[in-house]
Measured scan of single mutants.
Amino acid sequence: MQIFVKGLTGKTTTLEVEPSDTIENVKAKIQDKTGLPPDQQRLIFAGKQLEDGRTLSDYNIQKESTLHIVWR
């Protein structure tokens, strides 16, 4: 499925993911596209910070959802 990651600059990155992907895995995909290391990424969805060990489905993140990224 496709999801979007929007940064503070307003730039949006598209990712191809599975609902079973962990947040850690998603951060690795973001690094592949942007070069930003996972330890500098904070992902937010529906006002919650996403924890590395959880999956996208744990947070009810579905296709075409938009996550927000904040740099540490």
Rank of each mutant, 00 (worst) to 15 (best):
M1V: 05
K27E: 01
D21M: 11
K29H: 04
F4A: 03
S65G: 06
E51W: 05
Y59H: 03
G53R: 08
L8A: 10
G10S: 07
K27Q: 02
Q49I: 15
D32Q: 14
G53K: 10
F4K: 07
K6W: 06
K11N: 12
T14W: 08
S57A: 14
G7D: 15
Q62P: 08
T34Q: 04
P19L: 10
P37M: 07
Q40F: 11
D58S: 12
D21G: 02
Y59Q: 03
V26P: 00
T12K: 09
E16A: 08
F4Y: 13
S65F: 07
L56A: 02
L43C: 01
L56S: 00
K27R: 05
Q49W: 14
V26T: 04
T66D: 03
R54K: 14
R42E: 13
D21Y: 07
V5Y: 03
I3M: 02
K29Q: 09
I69L: 15
D58R: 02
K33E: 08
T34F: 14
L8M: 12
K63L: 06
E51Y: 06
I44Q: 06
K11V: 13
N25Y: 10
G35D: 04
T66E: 07
Q40I: 09
T66L: 10
K27D: 00
L43P: 01
A46M: 14
Q41C: 10
P19H: 06
K27N: 02
Q62T: 14
R42L: 14
L56R: 01
Q62E: 11
V17H: 01
T14H: 05
I69V: 12
I23C: 02
P37W: 10
K63N: 15
R42Q: 13
L43R: 00
Q62C: 05
I44N: 05
G47W: 04
K33A: 13
Y59E: 02
D39G: 13
V5A: 04
N25E: 14
I69D: 04
Q2C: 07
V17A: 04
T13P: 03
K48G: 05
R42I: 15
D32K: 14
R42M: 15
S65R: 03
K11D: 11
Q41F: 15
Y59A: 02
Q2W: 09
M1Q: 03
K11P: 10
G10I: 13
E24G: 11
G10W: 06
T12P: 09
Q49C: 11
V5I: 14
G7L: 14
N25H: 11
P19W: 06
R42S: 10
K29Y: 06
T9C: 13
Q31H: 15
A28P: 01
V5Q: 01
K33T: 07
T13Q: 10
R72T: 15
P37E: 07
E51A: 08
K11R: 10
T34C: 08
